[in-house]
């Protein structure tokens, strides 16, 4: 079946409310029954309830696949980086440690790395990924560019990330505010940052959540 090209994944971490619906929905998938691929963390639970949901960003040049000594990670023609091939993965942990976004999960007892493959069983036939279909705040959004432009007028999608000197472009888009206009997100700039304590009177992340 032809893949509908117009649908894209948009992620806006700042809208995440930490409800775990994505984690639950992900574990319902047939290809990895009962095991969730979503990485959902508290950024720093001691000062804030801020959570960060991370799905695979599907890099154009996937570091995980290139550092894999067993050639277990493959990228499909339509740019989806698939989970490790079961007969090949030797559970060496290279991908887990090399992924700049911290996506792959290692299951040592099974000798197998498993990671988000953007619900390939669903998206390859035009359905939404499990996580995006249940996300109540639409931090994880799957749809067309027109839809996201209409729904989020004060932000726009980008897909370039800077890690030190390395630039990574991805299939999955990250929503960033229109002002100041940026072409990429420099991740290293948040090295010495911590979430602001919740007592702050005005939290821009909450303000962003109410945008319609």
């Amino acid at each position: 079946m032809p893949k509908p090209e117009k649908y894209e994944f948009f992620i806006d971490i700042s809208r995440c409310i930490g409800c775990q619906a994505c984690v639950q929905a992900c574990s319902e998938c047939d290809t990895h029954k009962g095991v969730s691929m979503i990485q959902l963390d508290y950024v720093d639970r001691s000062v804030s309830t801020q959570t960060v949901p991370v799905v695979c960003m599907h890099c154009d040049s996937p570091t995980c696949a290139e550092v894999c000594p067993a050639d277990a990670i493959k990228r499909t023609g339509d740019g989806v980086v698939q989970t490790a091939r079961k007969p090949r993965c030797i559970a060496c942990n290279n991908c887990v440690l090399a992924c700049p976004f911290g996506v792959p999960k290692m299951h040592n007892e099974m000798n197998l790395m498993m990671k988000c493959d953007m619900c390939y069983d669903r998206t390859s036939v035009g359905l939404k990924p499990m996580c995006a279909s249940v996300c109540p705040s639409q931090a994880l959004f799957y749809g067309t560019r027109e839809e996201i432009e209409r729904l989020r007028p004060s932000s726009h999608p980008i897909n370039s990330f800077q890690f030190g000197q390395q630039m990574i472009t991805t299939k999955v888009n990250m929503m960033v505010p229109n002002e100041p206009h940026v072409r990429l997100i420099d991740i290293a700039m948040s090295m010495d940052q911590s979430p602001a304590p919740q007592l702050m009177s005005y939290d821009p992340l909450l303000a962003n959540l109410y945008e319609e």
């Binding site: 971490i13 700042s14 963390d41 801020q50 990250m174 100041p180 991740i187 290293a188 602001a196 702050m200």
Partner: peptide, 26 residues
């Protein structure tokens, strides 16, 4: 890897902070 994920959130939050004001991270 955990800090990498947190830094992704903090980096994006900082951009919102520049547009909307207030404080998302310190």
């Amino acid at each position: 890897p955990r800090c990498r994920r947190a830094m992704l959130a903090l980096a994006q939050g900082q951009l919102w902070q520049k547009q909307l004001g207030g404080e998302s991270s310190v």
